[in-house]
Amino acid sequence: MFHIYCPYCEELREEEEFHPKGQAHIARPEEPDACSDEEWGDYLFFRDNPRGIHHEMWLHAVGCRKFFNITRNTVSYEILETYRMGEQPTVGAEHLAREEKTASVQAAEGGQQTVGASDAALASVKGAQA
């Protein structure tokens, strides 16, 4: 049962108030009609399933009804940060590699998932779980 920091309500709330909505940063192609069937199929159906750092979209369904993103370690279930829609994550896969030297960590490939973070940015992670 996760304890999730809602970046809009600005406090930790119980998981039961939220709906998970899958991988974050899946942008709809600007010109769908210009997409090949394969490209459109990728957008619709293909998602990453990394062991390690994953950026996920969640909805504070029983609360402010806002969508937001979570950076979560799928091994430890630790939530490393939560951030508002339109913002970018500050924690990426190499954070875990550096912090825990875990050889088997994978990174999600699509979107902005692997964007790195400076130590300063890591230190100011909002909503990091104790």
Partner: peptide, 13 residues
């Protein structure tokens, strides 16, 4: 309602 909010909040704010 959640569907409408999803599109508004994530694609067409």
């Amino acid at each position: 309602l959640e569907w409408l909010e999803l599109w508004h909040q994530t694609e067409w704010p």
